[in-house]
Design a binder for these strands. Structure first.
Lengths: 208, 208
DNA sequence: TAGATTGTTAATCGATTAACAATC
DNA sequence: TAGATTGTTAATCGATTAACAATC
């Protein structure tokens, strides 16, 4: 399978997966069409068909897509046909929210290790996981071959931790720190900063 | 000022603003160039110049951009030259994390109202704000002319709340619910779903 | 002046959409 | 068969980049 799929296509697949999973939960039908899916997501049907066509032929003319089958295929394509263990760095308010979030396990991920720098916090349990000192970060990452890490730490700590994680072999970082981090090519980074997201909308609001 | 600025350009401006603000904090220089800014962000210098050129001429040949001035201009363009009051719906773990997040006030936002549906939670204080029952949502939104709302609620509740918010006049919604919501044209929506972000990266990881 | 860097143009690149033959 | 919908092609649209005159 050729590996020149545009990033932007990969980025939409989880959205398709989410909508399809919800259709299964709703349970009122077993097939869907690119048009129906597109209407739910505000995406053109042509784009959905085009995106999927990068990976194979999953539908049938006249009837559309079998939802269960398409979900299965998307999971396979996105490597979600397994459970990914995740390390969380930072056990503040955000770390707590993430540690308690039930959506991870349900959708293919499991927070398995939690690190913090604060001596008061280290040793406590957070949703059944004992918080380790961040000094042990590389040791655990290497030993457990952790590939995915979530950073819920202040901006000043983010780049240093990213460097250490990359060095220890991590391949994907989801960071909540409000700062751009620099990693070598091939290492994946996703950013989540609520303020940046709000700032993307105020342009369109009346400054009354 | 013409209003055909691509969304994708607007989306990058907060990132520029973030990096420039950090340069100010670092305090080691007063000017920067499109090249330097681009290197920090992994964006080409040409793109930064092009993006800025939609709004005016902010630099000087030979010397680049005065950081303070460019920050001021970006704030003006993005309507961040004021403090935006924000309503938060959902006072669970994520709501707590958001309510305690110091980054809002520092960067132009203030969580001013918090709503929840749980009778136990309503009436309690969260970072000095009394949690109201979500039944009062429209009343407060209308009276206070709230334009921005953050949804930290389960997926099942998101669309219903979005409908109510839009009806009450809200113009921008940041939602953490793992579901696509549908709003009329002109209403802004930003999504934040950690699982979707993780799922965008696993494709590139070895499924060892 | 010489060096640096902008703002802008034109070229390139890539993504989206429209349309339709194929076919369930 | 008639209707529906796919997968794919070609056209369109839009975004990025390279290059450079202008100028600080």
């Amino acid at each position: 399978m050729a590996d020149d799929i545009p990033d932007i296509v990969i980025g939409r697949l989880p959205i398709y997966l989410q909508a399809l999973t919800r259709m299964i939960e709703d349970g009122d039908k077993t097939t869907t069409s690119s048009q129906e899916l597109g209407e739910r997501l505000g995406i053109s049907s042509a784009q959905i068909r085009k995106d999927l066509s990068h990976f194979g032929e999953f539908g049938k003319q006249g009837t559309g897509y079998h939802i269960n089958y398409l979900v299965e295929q998307l999971r396979r394509i996105l490597h979600l046909d397994r459970e990914w263990p995740v390390a969380l760095v930072g056990a503040g308010f955000l770390g707590h929210a993430l540690a308690h979030y039930g959506g991870f396990k349900r959708r293919g991920f499991r927070i398995s290790w939690i690190f913090d720098v604060d001596a008061q916090t280290v040793g406590q349990k957070l949703n059944d996981i004992t918080i380790r000192h961040v000094d042990n970060l590389e040791k655990v990452i290497r030993r457990e071959k952790v590939q995915i890490v979530v950073l819920a730490v202040p901006a000043v700590a983010a780049q240093g931790l990213a460097d250490r994680l990359v060095d220890a072999g991590v391949g994907a970082i989801l960071t909540y720190a409000p700062i751009s981090i620099s990693v070598p090519p091939g290492v994946q980074v996703q950013y989540s900063d609520p303020v940046v997201q709000l700032q993307r909308m105020t342009y369109y609001l009346d400054a009354e």
